[in-house]
Each structure stands twice: as C-alpha cells, then as structure tokens.
C-alpha cells in the first residue's frame, strides 16, 4: 500500500511469501497485482497463488549437460503456466487433477 504511492517504479520481491498459507498467498498475489497495475513488480515466488495472479510468468530452469550447467529463464504462455502451476501445487508427479486445479487457479486469478 505504501508502495502504491511510491515513486520507485520497480518493486522487486525475492521470496517474500515463503511459508504462508494458501489463502494468505492469494491475498498477497492480489496485492502484488494491484501494485503491478500502478508500476512494475517483479516477484520471485514459490507460491502458486501468487504466481497465478501475475500478469507475466517466467520459468527458471537449469540444463545440465556432461560438461557444465546452464541456467535459463523463459516466459511462459498460458498452457505452460498451467503446467508450471501444477508442478508448484503438486510436486514432481503432475496428475490430471492437479493440472485442472492449476488451470482453475489461473482462470480465477485472471478473472
């Protein structure tokens, strides 16, 4: 809320939402989105609810080949977002159920 009046346009949050419950995360996501409507917000998060509310979603990943490791970061389209949210919700094994839950989360957040 203070940030909404701030002249600092780029607000960056690095995992500020670790360890909060799903319902609180949903509110945090809404608040971040409100801030984003007025300026730029970049938020590194583990919370699917927070990620679902974002206007844009980037995925960080690591490619390991025989000689070296390489970090990548790519923007996700809607179906890729659903896939990533499902991973965040459900862990390593993504089931159809978590995938539909993820899709629902994204739809609700962007509605």
């Amino acid at each position: 809320m203070a940030a909404a009046h701030s002249k600092i346009p780029t607000l960056i949050f690095d995992e500020v939402d670790v360890g909060i419950g799903g319902s609180t995360a949903d509110i945090v996501g809404q608040l971040l989105k409100q801030l984003g409507d007025r300026g730029q917000v970049i938020s590194v998060t583990h919370q699917p609810q927070v990620a679902a509310h974002a206007h844009h979603h980037y995925l960080a990943s690591k490619v390991i080949d025989t000689n070296s490791a390489e970090s990548l970061m790519v923007p996700l389209d809607r179906s890729q977002r659903v896939e990533e949210l499902a991973r965040m919700l459900g862990g390593a094994q993504v089931t159809e159920q978590t995938r539909s839950h993820a899709s629902e989360l994204l739809s609700l957040a962007s509605s």
């Binding site: 917000v41 938020s43 590194v44 980037y58 960080a60 990943s61 970061m73």
Partner: peptide, 19 residues
C-alpha cells in the same frame, strides 16, 4: 514488461539469479 511478473522454478534452478 510493466505489471506484475512472477518468476518461479524448482529450488536451485536459479530463480534468484536474475535478481
């Protein structure tokens, strides 16, 4: 871009690297 951008990924994938 403007608006809210979320960066996610598995632990150790380098999410905070950009920051």
């Amino acid at each position: 871009s403007g608006g809210t951008t979320a960066i996610t990924g598995e632990t150790g994938a380098g999410k905070s690297l950009v920051l």
